[in-house]
Simulated assay, not measured.
Amino acid sequence: MSNSNQNPVLNGMAINEVVASITINNKVKGLHNPTRTFEEVIADAKAQLSVALASEDMQPTGGIYELANVILQIAEYCGEQGIDLEELIREQLLYKLMQPAVKVQE
């Protein structure tokens, strides 16, 4: 797995910068599809996660790259829809931090 510190282009990128970068990259390469529906994005993510699960069975780190691909697909969708993913993640994190701790039974 590569370290983002070795790539100055990605080092310290904020979430919305990732959204913009993947959207521009996909437009330039002809991979941009602004007509995708929410359902299509979820179906694609589910397929990628299935690949990640299968990859983990074969190679312990193989599935990690599929997880990253899912995040990038979601990032692009959010960019297409004008969703501020960074703010959404911040809101959800704050919500989770405010929730009381629940002890998991073993």
Rank of each mutant, 00 (worst) to 15 (best):
Y77G: 01
M13W: 03
L72T: 12
V18R: 06
S21D: 02
G82E: 07
A14N: 03
Q73S: 10
E106M: 11
Q59N: 15
N5A: 09
V19H: 00
M98V: 06
N7R: 06
G63V: 09
G82I: 01
V104G: 09
E39Q: 11
M13T: 02
L72K: 11
P60F: 15
D44M: 12
M1S: 10
T35D: 07
T37N: 00
V28M: 05
S55C: 11
L72H: 07
A52G: 10
Q6A: 07
A45W: 01
A52Y: 07
G63L: 08
E86H: 09
L94K: 15
L88A: 14
P60E: 15
V41M: 07
V28T: 04
L53G: 09
K29E: 02
S4Q: 11
A101Y: 14
R36S: 03
N33G: 00
S4W: 12
S50L: 12
I71A: 13
E106G: 11
K103T: 15
K103Y: 12
A14Y: 05
N69Q: 08
N25Y: 04
N69D: 13
N5E: 04
I15E: 03
N33Q: 09
N25E: 08
V19A: 00
A47I: 09
A45D: 08
Q81G: 04
A45G: 09
D44A: 13
L10F: 06
N11I: 01
S50A: 11
